[in-house]
C-alpha cells in the first residue's frame, strides 16, 4: 500500500527522527515506551518525580489488561486510551521531562499542538480498541511503577514494542490532522443543517 508506506521510529526518539515526521504519515514504533494515563499525568503535572528518565522517551496513553503468570507479567490486552483527557497536563510534562513522543488516540486541541511545536514532540494516533493486534506488538514487559498507588490499569508499565503501527496526528510543526478533518466535516454539517430538505414526517 503506497500511501501507507511506513516510517520507522526507534527508541531513543531523537529530535532528528521525530522532526522529519509529518502529520498523516504512517509509522512503526519500536523500542521502549512508558504507559501513563490520568493518574500519572496529574501526578507529574503536580511536580511528582518520574522513576525513570523520560528524555527522548514515549508516553503511551494505555491502561493494559495484564495478569501475573508465575513470576512474569503477561499482557492480555493493550490499546490506546483517549488522549484528550491528558491535554491540560501535556505541555508541562513534555517540557519538564523532555518527552519526545505521545502515543494515544483521538482528537487533540491547540494546547497539544503548541506543546508539540515547542518541545519538538509528535502525537501518534494508534487504532482505538485494537487491543489484540496492538498487544502483539508488545514484545516484553520490562518493568512496573506505581502499581500499588494507582492500580494496575493506571500504573506506569515499561513496555518494549516492535513495529507498533500508528498515524502521525500532530507533527512537531504543530500540524493537526484530526483538526483539519474536523473543520471540513463542520462545514459539511452546517450545509446539511441548512438544507432545504428538512425531515418532515
Amino acid at each position: 500500500m503506497a500511501l501507507l508506506k511506513p516510517r520507522r521510529l526507534e527508541y531513543p526518539f531523537t529530535q532528528e527522527q521525530v522532526g522529519s515526521l509529518r502529520a498523516g504519515q504512517f509509522v512503526l514504533v519500536s523500542g521502549l515506551v512508558y504507559t501513563a494515563r490520568d493518574r500519572i499525568h496529574k501526578f507529574f503535572f503536580e511536580g511528582g518525580k518520574s522513576p525513570v528518565d523520560l528524555k527522548n522517551a514515549a508516553l503511551y496513553h494505555c491502561g493494559p489488561v495484564v495478569i501475573r503468570k508465575d513470576s512474569d507479567w503477561v499482557v492480555r490486552a493493550a490499546g490506546p486510551t483517549t488522549s484528550i483527557r491528558e491535554e491540560p497536563y501535556l505541555p508541562r510534562i513534555i517540557k519538564d521531562h523532555g518527552v519526545r513522543v505521545i502515543i494515544g488516540k483521538g482528537s487533540m486541541g491547540k494546547v497539544t499542538e503548541g506543546a508539540c511545536k515547542a518541545g519538538g514532540c509528535v502525537y501518534l494516533h494508534a487504532v482505538g480498541g485494537a487491543a489484540q493486534v496492538l498487544a502483539e506488538k508488545v514484545v516484553s514487559v520490562k518493568g512496573l511503577y506505581f502499581g500499588e498507588e494507582f492500580g494496575l490499569a493506571e500504573a506506569m508499565w515499561v513496555l518494549e514494542l516492535k513495529d507498533f503501527p500508528a498515524i502521525v496526528a500532530i507533527d512537531s510543526k504543530g500540524h493537526n490532522l484530526l483538526r483539519r478533518i474536523k473543520s471540513a466535516s463542520l462545514g459539511i454539517g452546517r450545509k446539511l443543517m441548512k438544507s432545504s430538505d428538512p425531515f418532515i414526517p
Binding site: 494505555c62 491502561g63 493494559p64 489488561v65 492480555r76 490486552a77 493493550a78 490499546g79 486510551t81 480498541g129 485494537a130 487491543a131 489484540q132 498487544a135
Partner: peptide, 9 residues
C-alpha cells in the same frame, strides 16, 4: 486467543 477485544472492558 480468547482475550478481550479491547482493554477497556
Amino acid at each position: 486467543k480468547d482475550a478481550p477485544l479491547c482493554q477497556d472492558t
